[in-house]
Amino acid sequence: MSKRKVQFDDSAGGSGDSTRRFKEKHSLDSDEEYDEKEELLDEDDIEGQEEGTVDYDEGIRITPFNMREEMEEGHFDKDGMYIFSKDKNQIKDEWMDNIDWQKIKETEDGGKMETQSDDSDDEPERLDLKSIYSQMLEYLKPGETITKALRRLGGNKGKPMSSAQRWKAKKQKTEETEEDEKAAKDRENFLALTGLADKVLQDGNMEVYEMTLEKLNYELKKFDKGNKRVTVPADATDDDALDMFADDFDKNEADKIGKDFENTNNEDTKDDKDSKKQEEKDETTSSNEVMWEFKWADKEDEEIHGPHSSDEMLKWSEEGFFKSGVFCRKVGTQSQFYSSRRIDFDLYT
C-alpha cells in the first residue's frame, strides 16, 4: 500500500515543478494549489476494499472492489474528494502536439533509401538540368532574368484591390473571361517557372534567379558541346539540330525551293560560321566573365601576365601563390593595377 503511495507521489511530481514555482509568487493559478502531502487521504482509511479475485468471468471483465485503478489516475484529499492527478499528458506543448510522429517514423524507415539515392543522383541530375533549362527558355523573353519573368507573370496584380474594386470586378466577371484566361495562364506559367527555378536552386545554383535567356542558352550550349564535340567534327548540321534558333531551317527551306546542291552547301558553311560567331559572342556577353592580367611589381616596364580567369586567380590567391601580393587589373579596362590582397576574386566568379 505504501508503495503505491510513493508511486503516486512520483506521478504527481510531474506537475510538481510548476506548483513549487507558483508557491513562491502568488499568481492566478495559485488557488488551485494545495499541499498534497498534508491533505492526502490515507489509503487505509478507505474501508471495505478487496483484492481482485478473478479478472474475467466468461469473457466479461470484473473490476475488483478497490480503489487501486483510481489511485493510479488520481488521489483523494482529506475530505474524500477525488482529484485527478495532472499527469504528463496534461502538460500541453504546442510544439510537441504539432509533430507528425507518423511522418517521422516514415522518414526513419526511408532514411536508408534517401542516402542511397544521394549517392547516385549525380548523373541524372545533370541531364535534368538540361531539360529544366530548356523548359525555362519557354517562359523567358530576351534579356529577361528569371526574377523579372516571374514579376511579369505574377506581378500584374500589383496593389491589392480595394473592396469597391473587387466588387466591381465581381460584377464584371462574366464579361472579361478572356483577360481571366490570360491571367490564369500567366499564373500557371508563374508556378511552373518557380518550380523549375527552385529545382535548380536546390541543386546548388544560387544564381539561378539572375539567369537571363541568353545565359540559359549559353549553358545549354555548354551541355551540347560537352556531349557532341567528340562525335561531330566541324559539321554544322548536328549542332544546328540542338540549336534553338535552328539555323538549319534556312537550308531545308532552300532545298525545298530547289536550289542546286552547291549553293546549299555554301549556305551550310556560311551558317556554320554564323553560328560559331554567335557562340563566341555569347561567350563574351552572357557569361560576362572577368579576365585578369597581373604583374609582380607595380612598375611600368614590368612584364604583364595573363589574361587569367577569375577562377584561376581565386585559386591562386587562396593557395598562397600571391602571398607577397601581385598587382592586377581587369583585362580590357585601362584602370590602374590594384594589389591582389585587396581584391576578392570570389566576387567575380
Partner: peptide, 27 residues
C-alpha cells in the same frame, strides 16, 4: 573616374552576393 567605377563595381558584385561589407580595390 576608373577608380570610382572599380569601387562601385566591387560594391555591386559584393552586394549581389549578399555581402554587407566589401573591400575597395585600392587602399
Amino acid at each position: 573616374v576608373q577608380e570610382f567605377i572599380d569601387i562601385v563595381e566591387t560594391v555591386f558584385r559584393g552586394a549581389r552576393k549578399g555581402r554587407g561589407l566589401v573591400i575597395s580595390p585600392k587602399d
